[in-house]
């Protein structure tokens, strides 16, 4: 499809204070494109959870959002430690977050389940010691 609009972001792994910024920008950009509010909400929440995970668990990464004719695709790539057991990580309540991170309100173990719930497609590719790539899609129709 030639008419793809895409946005790319580098997500800083050090900085908690601006974590989530890429998702807020994506929300604005999608609003400007005139996408339905419910789609925008689902995309930006799913992306936020993935973005925060890259900051908290993987030392940062890259985020890309592509607006296709029939869906919005979110691709999150990091070079962090990888996920040992995807099935376990997907369970509500499972978290390896430290106490410091929990004190900020993260670490409920709800991020990945939210990503699954808010998207129509989700794929996790991960390798221990190499990194993780998560692809999500929200259908436009």
């Amino acid at each position: 499809m030639p008419d793809t609009v895409s946005f790319k972001f580098s997500v800083d792994g050090e900085d908690f204070t601006c974590a989530g910024q890429a998702s807020v920008i994506v929300k604005k950009n999608l609003r400007q494109l005139g996408l339905p509010p419910e789609i925008i909400r689902r995309v930006s929440i799913a992306m936020y959870e993935g973005e925060i995970n890259m900051v908290i668990h993987a030392g940062g990464g890259e985020a890309e959002v592509k607006v296709w004719e029939d869906c919005v695709e979110i691709i999150l790539t990091d070079h962090g430690p990888g996920i040992k057991d995807i099935e376990q990580a997907m369970q509500e309540g499972f978290s390896t977050a430290t106490d410091t991170i929990r004190s900020l309100g993260f670490g409920a173990g709800m991020g990945l389940p939210n990503m699954k719930r808010y998207t129509d497609y989700m794929d996790i590719k991960t390798e221990i010691g190499v990194g993780t790539t998560i692809t999500m899609k929200v259908n436009l129709s």
Partner: peptide, 15 residues
């Protein structure tokens, strides 16, 4: 009762 900066992004995204 959370007051760190991350609540702002959560509020923005949940609208």
């Amino acid at each position: 009762i959370m007051s760190n900066v991350n609540i702002l992004a959560v509020a923005a995204l949940t609208d």
